[in-house]
C-alpha cells in the first residue's frame, strides 16, 4: 500500500514549542479525515448496491418490456411502455393476491403485536431466570422458516394433524385447513405469529427498559396502579419503538412467501385450489418463474408491491409522529 506511514518515534527530547508537521503528513491526515469514513461504510453500500439496488432498478427496467425469462437472451424483449402496469388493473388474480396479502397481514400482525406487548410487559417485571426467559422467546425466530412451514404443515394436516386431533378431543368438528379461505389464512397467520411474536416482544422490551424509572415512581406516588401505569406511562413512551416494530412487520408481512408455499405443498405458488393463500410475492413468482414469458409483468407486480410497502410505511410514520406530538 502506498499510503503507509511509519509510526512516529518515541519522543526523547523534552517538549518544546510544537514543530510544524511535514507537508506529507498534513496531506495524509486530511485524506484520512475526509475519506476514511466513506471507506468504512463502503462495504455495506457496495454489497447493497450489487444485491439490493441493482436488482431493484433492473426489475424496474424489465417492467417496461415484454420479457421472456428463458428465451430473452436469444429472442430479445420488445418495449411495451406502461402496458404491464395497466394490465394489473384488470387482472382478477392480481387483486386476489393483494387481498390475500393484506388479509393475512392483518390477521397475523394485530394479534402478534398485542401478544408481543403483553409478553414484553411480563418480561419487564422482576422474574426468576429472567435472562433465560428473554432468550427463550427468541428461539422460534432462530428456527428456519422452511422447517416451521413443514412442521406446521404436519400439525395442521387434515387427517392426522395434532391440531385437528385436539379439536376433535374438545368435541368440535375437524377442520380441513385447506378447505376454506379463513382456515387457510388462520393456519398461515399462526405460522407467522409463531416466528415473529418473540422477536417483537424483545424489541418492545428494549424500548420499555429505556423508559426512566422515576416516571413510574411518580406515577405510583400519584396513585396509579399497574394497569394505569402501563397505559399512561409505558404505552406513550413506547411509540417510537412501536413505529419500528410496525414498519418491520409491514415489510415482512407484505412479502410473505415461504410459509404459504410450503403449507400448500402440491399447489406450490398457487396457494390452494382457489388461490386462497396466494400472496403478492407468490404471484410474482408464478408470473415470472412459473410462466416464464410473463417476467416483465412479474416485474411490474414487484414494483407495485414496493410502492404499496412505501405507502404503508409512510402512513404509519405520519400517524405515529402525529400522535407523539
Amino acid at each position: 500500500m502506498s499510503l503507509t506511514v511509519k509510526a512516529p518515534p518515541a519522543r526523547l527530547d523534552p517538549p518544546g514549542p510544537p514543530q510544524p508537521p511535514g507537508r506529507r503528513r498534513v496531506h495524509i491526515g486530511r485524506f484520512d479525515l475526509k475519506f476514511s469514513p466513506y471507506l468504512y461504510v463502503a462495504p455495506f453500500f457496495v454489497v447493497f448496491g450489487v444485491f439490493g439496488a441493482y436488482p431493484m432498478f433492473r426489475t424496474l427496467y424489465m417492467s417496461f418490456f415484454d420479457w421472456d425469462l428463458v428465451n430473452e437472451r436469444t429472442l430479445g424483449h420488445p418495449f411495451v411502455g406502461f402496458d404491464n402496469y395497466a394490465a394489473m388493473f384488470t387482472d382478477p388474480y392480481y387483486w386476489n393476491a393483494l387481498k390475500n396479502t393484506i388479509g393475512i397481514f392483518l390477521l397475523s400482525t394485530i394479534p402478534q403485536i398485542l401478544l408481543a406487548l403483553f409478553l414484553a410487559n411480563a418480561l419487564n417485571r422482576p422474574l426468576r431466570a429472567r435472562t433465560l426467559l428473554r432468550m427463550a422467546v427468541l428461539v422460534p425466530n432462530a428456527t428456519s422458516v422452511a422447517a416451521v412451514g413443514i412442521i406446521f404443515g404436519t400439525l395442521f394436516q387434515r387427517d392426522f394433524g395434532v391440531i385437528n386431533w385436539v379439536i376433535e378431543k374438545v368435541g368440535l368438528e375437524r377442520i380441513d385447513w385447506h378447505g376454506s379461505l379463513w382456515a387457510e389464512w388462520t393456519a398461515v397467520a399462526t405460522m407467522v405469529d409463531w416466528r415473529w411474536t418473540g422477536y417483537n416482544a424483545l424489541i418492545l422490551l428494549a424500548g420499555m427498559q429505556a423508559i426512566p424509572r422515576d416516571l413510574y415512581e411518580s406515577a405510583a406516588i400519584d396513585g396509579a396502579n399497574q394497569w394505569r401505569q402501563f397505559w399512561s406511562v409505558t404505552f406513550p413512551m413506547l411509540r417510537p419503538t412501536f413505529l419500528f416494530v410496525t414498519i418491520v412487520s409491514i415489510v415482512g408481512g407484505l412479502q410473505l412467501f415461504t410459509e404459504p408455499v410450503i403449507f400448500n405443498n402440491g399447489f406450490s405458488v398457487m396457494g390452494g385450489t382457489r388461490r386462497e393463500a396466494q400472496t403478492m410475492t407468490m404471484y410474482i413468482w408464478e408470473k415470472s418463474i412459473d410462466q416464464t414469458q410473463n417476467a416483465g409483468y412479474g416485474a411490474a407486480v414487484s414494483w407495485s408491491l414496493f410502492v404499496l410497502i412505501m405507502i404503508a410505511a409512510l402512513v404509519n410514520f405520519i400517524l405515529v409522529r402525529k400522535s407523539v406530538k
Binding site: A7, I28, D32, S36, L39, Y40, P43, V46
Partner: peptide, 24 residues
C-alpha cells in the same frame, strides 16, 4: 496518528478491495 487508527484504515481498504474483487 495512532497505530490503531492506521490499522483500522488498512482493514477498511482491504474490505473494500475484497468486495470489489468479489464482484469482479
Amino acid at each position: 496518528m495512532s497505530v490503531t487508527k492506521h490499522r483500522l484504515r488498512r482493514v477498511a481498504a482491504v474490505a473494500l478491495v475484497a468486495t470489489v474483487a468479489l464482484g469482479a
